[in-house]
């Protein structure tokens, strides 16, 4: 399966998850967006050596994933497969930051490893929250929410059109790509073939855009995209946003794991 087909499959599967009627889907999308942004800001506001202190925050994406009846394995796989820049950069931390920070008896862990662990936790939390947001909301509803939250319509219309035609153009690109591969005896594509191939795809994209424009005009398009879609904010959404924000604030201000650890170990260190 080509990269394009795999990517389109990802889009499809996340959208399929979002299309189901779950407790998460029933929440107003604006509430979910606001809460997720608050979450991300909370996570990144910790200092670089925070690891355990971040952990209580994991409850947010977990709870939402459960509310949305989201399957754990595919989402976790997405998380793990995203070999991100952040991890590669983070790997330098243990190399550069070698002062001991934690001590367990005779063994010590350098500060660099602690900050690297922090980077890993941040990555898991922030990216996990984004995935949960999209898998529990869906592209269309998300864009309506963004418009209601003040994002210019030019941008949200662009997102929706991009999403709509990603499948069509992606399928065209996949076909053209496969057709070339079948005639290439395993050789990678040379620039001499790349220019014309993508050039052709690009020209067809232009022609398609022209036809879509005609279809829009034929049904009365005057430059303004109108929609009947409404979002209904309820008390449940207010409780959702306020409740989670309070939790984030608590976790940010109080190092809960330290407290718990000390309590469990007794009063003396």
């Amino acid at each position: 399966m080509s990269r394009i087909d795999a990517a389109l499959g990802d889009l499809r599967s996340l959208e399929a998850l979002a299309a189901r009627d779950t407790a998460l889907a029933r929440l107003d999308a604006r509430a979910k967006v606001v809460a997720t942004l608050a979450f991300v800001v909370t996570v990144v506001s910790f200092d670089r050596y925070a690891v355990a202190a971040l952990l209580p925050l994991a409850f947010f994406p977990l709870a939402l994933a459960i509310q949305g009846e989201l399957p754990a394995k595919p989402l976790l796989r997405k998380l793990l497969l995203a070999a991100p820049f952040a991890v590669m950069v983070g790997l330098f931390n243990p190399l550069l930051d070698r002062a001991p920070m934690l001590a367990f008896g005779d063994a010590s862990v350098s500060a660099g490893w602690v900050s690297f662990a922090s980077i890993l936790v941040r990555f898991a939390l922030t990216v996990g929250a984004a995935l949960v947001l999209v898998a529990g909301t869906g592209m269309n509803t998300l864009c309506v929410a963004l418009t209601r939250l003040g994002v210019p319509q030019v941008m949200t219309a662009q997102l929706l059109f991009l999403f709509r035609y990603a499948f069509v153009l992606g399928a065209e690109a996949a076909r053209t790509s496969t057709a070339r591969e079948l005639r290439s005896s395993g050789r990678a594509m040379a620039l001499a073939a790349y220019g014309p191939m993508l050039g052709h795809l690009l020209l067809r994209a232009f022609e398609r855009a022209q036809r879509i424009h005609m279809a829009m005009l034929a049904r009365g398009f005057d430059g303004e995209l109108r929609s009947l879609r409404t979002l209904r904010w309820s008390t449940r959404d207010t409780v959702f946003v306020l409740g989670w924000s309070a939790f984030f604030l608590l976790v940010r201000l109080v190092d809960l794991p330290q407290w718990a650890g000390r309590a469990l170990l007794g009063a003396s260190p």
Binding site: I4, F161, L169, Y194, F206, A209, H213, D222
Partner: peptide
């Protein structure tokens, strides 16, 4: 106010999205 841009930008965005997944050999 060029309303041709609405579908064109969307389609070209889809083009770039797809094109980013097509590799060529660097000479």
């Amino acid at each position: 106010g060029d309303d041709r841009l609405v579908p064109l930008m969307g389609v070209l965005g889809a083009f770039v999205f797809a094109a980013q997944m097509i590799n060529f050999a660097i000479p």
